[in-house]
Computed example of a mutant assay.
Amino acid sequence: MSYVRGEYVRSQQDWAVEQERLRHDQALHYIGENALFCLLWTARDHDAGLVDLCQSCASDRISQAYGQASRNKCPSCFGTRFEGGYRALIVRPAVFTDADDSQSFTARGAVAPQEVHLETTSDFRAHSGDYCMRATGERLQLRAPQRTTLRSGFGTPYQRESATAYNLARAAVEDPESAAYLIPPDTDGLIEILSRTGSTPPSFTDVEVLRAPLIPLYERD
């Protein structure tokens, strides 16, 4: 005698993800601030055919041999080695922790690093090395962003379907002499953009730049 054992498999609850994202975004708009995120091109973008190498600094023999830009402060690619430097400039609400000045000794001498943690929306993929710009004029480099996904049923929690936040990504304030300050807008323009008032939230479509999907298909996990 044989029989088939019945099993119940819980289905994906899309409404739960939507509700959690809504609450999260409301909190960001309520207690956060607008920040400009600069998402840089990566080698995977180049391999996927989304971007070409920079014609100014990535076409010589040195760059091709070592696989990196021949100069760090290239005004065309900002040291990324890829044409245009960034795949997107977007404004998103974000919450930042406070930063205290400190001093540490490195191979380059005494430095005063400032690190904060930030949290923002889940509708884009950030990488270590991307930049976040604040209304204070500071530009911060992200360190290994991490996602928070909501498991509401059986299946793999991909970012596009289930992510609710980037949770506590570390970011360090960049030196004013770094390539980060070559990326438009300039400091005065940045402060003016992020200090906009009026509609809630204000529109930033005139300053945002999208050159590729915010979550590439090859990075949907």
Results as ranks from 00 to 15, higher is better:
42 T>Y: 02
42 T>F: 02
44 R>P: 01
45 D>P: 10
45 D>I: 09
46 H>D: 08
47 D>C: 03
47 D>Q: 11
48 A>Q: 03
50 L>Q: 10
52 D>R: 14
54 C>Q: 01
54 C>S: 06
56 S>Q: 14
57 C>A: 06
65 A>C: 05
65 A>M: 06
65 A>Y: 03
68 Q>E: 13
69 A>M: 01
71 R>A: 00
71 R>Q: 05
72 N>L: 12
72 N>W: 06
73 K>L: 12
75 P>G: 08
80 T>H: 06
80 T>C: 12
88 A>L: 11
90 I>D: 00
91 V>R: 04
91 V>H: 03
93 P>S: 10
94 A>G: 06
94 A>I: 02
94 A>W: 02
95 V>T: 11
95 V>N: 00
98 D>P: 08
98 D>N: 15
99 A>T: 10
99 A>E: 08
101 D>R: 10
103 Q>R: 09
103 Q>H: 04
104 S>C: 08
104 S>H: 06
106 T>C: 08
107 A>I: 11
108 R>K: 15
108 R>A: 09
108 R>I: 03
110 A>G: 02
112 A>N: 08
114 Q>V: 03
115 E>Y: 11
115 E>F: 13
118 L>N: 08
119 E>G: 15
120 T>Y: 15
121 T>N: 06
123 D>T: 09
123 D>W: 09
124 F>D: 04
125 R>S: 06
126 A>G: 13
126 A>Q: 12
127 H>F: 06
128 S>M: 04
128 S>C: 10
132 C>D: 05
133 M>P: 00
133 M>G: 05
134 R>I: 11
134 R>F: 12
135 A>T: 06
136 T>D: 15
